[in-house]
Every structure is written in structure tokens, then in C-alpha cells.
């Protein structure tokens, strides 16, 4: 589903962020992009959701070359992608319901369907009883669950998460990661940028390690038997 061919990114100030990245992520995969701060994790995600254009190379998503999309087609592409960020990116002046309903309103979904789908997805993340609250009235974990609900309400084919557990304590981080696993099992491709090694070990999946903008490691998780032996 996602294919990067010799992708490089140099920012306008001359700072190189990624060098010659080539990788394939099949549909339905669960992939971590990991590495230290400044390794290029967030840049890679930004390239995937077309917030940046690569300085060189091509990016194919669902067979479409995203480097050649105009702004309207970028918008249409993003309707197939769910986003979860470390800082949640919720609108504080709107209720939980309104935040989650936003992607559906953007797509022109009718009012009744919006109500039913938002309620369903809020039930899924366990926040159906807080739908009239404003984000700042919720805990960090709850805000992240609202962000996940907003990402899931359109049944995206791809879920991108940038340090989704970075602002949460251990227990909440585990809860959020379990939610990502469930989402992945429903068929959504999940790509998480994270440097939280404990979570990566606790929920093992394919892991792409970046260092100074280069892929230094691309490893599949150990098989269950091997894990048992360890």
C-alpha cells in the first residue's frame, strides 16, 4: 500500500532530514518508526501525509504518486488517513462530539449519520458519556482517546501516529497502544513514530529504525516461539 523509492528530504534552510529512504509497507501492517530525536521520524510521517514534499524520490500510496498531487487531491488523500499526535491537536473551543464529527462534516456526511457514527466511535474508545465536554475538561489519556476516535470515525485505511504516548503515563500509554492494536486488527494499516522502547517491546511489530535520516534497521518482530524461548 505504501511505497517509498529513494526518498530524500532537505529543508529550505539546507538541513538534511532524510537520505535515500526506500521501503514498502503492505496494507494491514503495523509498523513502528523509531530512532532518537532528530532522526527523521516526524519528517517521514509528514511526507506520508503530504505536509512536506520530498526533495527527491517518489512516494506511492494506494497506487497514487503523492508527490504530484495538487492541494485538492492532497485533501482527498487525507480523508483516507487518520492522524494521532502527541499534543492531540484537538479544538479546545469545541466539544468532544464536535471534534470527532469534524472529519465527517468535512466530507459532507449528513447530520443523522454523523450523530450515529460519532456515538459509535466514542463508545469504542469509552467516552460516549463525555461527548458534550470540552477537551480541556478531560485527562490526557481521554484527550488522546478523543483524537483516536476522530481518526477512526472515517474508517481510514491508514492510521499515522506521531509519538502518541509521549505525553501519557505508563498505564494510559498501554491503554492507547492496546487500542491501536485493536484498530490494526480491524484491517487498518498503522504506522507509529515513537522512541518509547518499552512500548515497542511490549507490543512487538515491524520496526524501522532511523538514524540521522537513514534507515539503519528494518526488523520484523520475533516469532511467538522465539519470544517464549527468550
Amino acid at each position: 500500500m505504501i511505497q517509498l523509492c529513494n526518498v530524500g528530504k532537505i529543508y529550505p534552510n539546507g538541513a538534511p532530514a532524510l537520505h535515500n529512504i526506500s521501503l514498502k509497507i503492505p496494507s494491514g501492517d503495523f509498523v513502528y518508526v523509531t530512532g532518537s530525536s532528530g532522526a527523521g521520524k516526524s519528517t517521514l510521517l509528514r511526507l506520508l501525509y503530504c505536509a512536506e514534499k520530498p526533495s527527491r524520490g517518489q512516494i506511492l500510496m494506494g497506487g497514487r504518486n503523492t508527490t504530484r498531487l495538487n492541494s485538492r487531491n492532497v485533501a482527498l488523500l487525507r480523508r483516507d488517513i487518520g492522524f494521532v499526535f502527541q499534543d492531540f491537536k484537538l479544538l479546545h473551543n469545541r466539544s468532544v462530539f464536535e471534534n470527532v464529527a469534524l472529519p465527517l462534516q468535512v466530507q459532507g456526511t449528513n447530520k443523522q449519520e454523523i450523530s450515529s457514527r460519532v456515538y459509535q466511535v466514542l463508545q469504542y474508545v469509552g467516552l460516549e458519556y463525555k461527548l458534550q465536554r470540552k477537551p480541556l475538561e478531560l485527562s490526557g489519556g481521554e484527550q488522546q482517546r478523543v483524537a483516536i476516535a476522530r481518526a477512526m470515525v472515517v474508517n481510514p485505511r491508514l492510521l499515522l501516529a506521531d509519538e502518541p504516548t509521549g505525553n501519557l503515563d505508563q498505564a494510559l500509554a498501554v491503554e492507547i497502544m492496546e487500542m491501536f492494536n485493536l484498530i490494526n486488527k480491524s484491517g487498518t494499516t498503522v504506522l507509529i513514530a515513537s522512541h518509547d522502547q518499552e512500548m515497542l517491546q511490549r507490543f512487538p511489530h515491524r520496526s524501522i529504525v532511523l538514524h540521522d535520516g537513514n534507515i539503519t534497521h528494518d526488523s520484523m518482530p520475533p516469532e511467538p516461539e522465539q519470544q517464549d524461548n527468550i
Partner: peptide, 16 residues
């Protein structure tokens, strides 16, 4: 500007 950014991320067209 946060609102503009979020709207863009969730697939709103520039005109929307």
C-alpha cells in the same frame, strides 16, 4: 492557525 492546521489534516479542501 491551529484550527486551520487541524482542518487541513482531516481532509478539508482549501476552499472548505
Amino acid at each position: 492557525r491551529d484550527e486551520l492546521e487541524i482542518m487541513g489534516l482531516i481532509g478539508a479542501t482549501p476552499m472548505f
